[in-house]
Design a binder for these strands. Structure first.
Lengths: 113, 113
DNA sequence: GTCATATTTAACCAAAAGGTTGACGATTGG
DNA sequence: CCAATCGTCAACCTTTTGGTTAAATATGAC
């Protein structure tokens, strides 16, 4: 599963990972905090996060001993374009979406603090 | 995997199934004809088609001994909506998000379109 | 009726997915 | 330094996925 579309769609196929993405929509989070609401081990969440990172849907940056997870909305672009091919759907307007995040959810749109 | 989004995204995660959907974009096809370009048994393709049907992405209608496969683009809608919002359980953001849809993506915000 | 065609089902298999626990390396704080 | 915290890795397990082949079912053609 090295193809981008394969990885993105597979990443989205799991409800835990979709929930993680929704959480990250509000704000960047540390791995431990991402894991907190789930009834599942930290190791399992860590694997989900690795998979989301490889799919390009999030990025992870280590600061001190804490690893911060950040949504990468642009990771959806290839999938969105593919779905557009089916006609009747509008593309996900990611540029506009990021502007939306910046104005409506200032914390989540921080670039560098 | 009974959740609709799970099934749709999982269905899209396989390159064979995406190729099948692309083929059906051009025209309805019989199972045998769908299978023809693939280097894989007819039984395998039959399973892929069953999965696509359960995900709501295609429908199959038997006429005589031939089973016709037809694209159901509307099956992508839930996935498309999820991707637009990148998640849906943020009550605070919903109003703003709909305003966002209305201004940036007029077509997608139609209720009866 | 018999044979060919279209498709599914059953039994099987290897590999991948998703989870567990426990040990480990890195970092921070007292 | 020592202990606690953060996160990953390794080993393992079970279930699902994606494929195979062979047999079965249903229909059409002659």
């Amino acid at each position: 599963m090295t193809d981008t579309l394969d990885m993105v769609f597979a990443a989205l196929a799991d409800p835990t990972r979709r929930a993680i993405l929704s959480m990250l929509l509000e704000d960047d989070m540390a791995v431990t905090d991402v894991a907190e609401p789930f009834e599942m081990s930290l190791a399992a969440i860590s694997k989900h996060l690795t998979l989301l990172t490889r799919a390009g849907l999030i990025s992870q940056e280590k600061r001190g001993r804490v690893k911060w997870c950040k949504l990468e909305p642009d990771g959806l672009r290839a999938a969105s374009v593919w779905m557009q091919g089916f006609g009747q759907f509008e593309p996900v307007n990611l540029d506009a979406f990021e502007r939306f995040l910046a104005t409506e959810i200032p914390d989540a749109a921080r670039d560098d603090g």
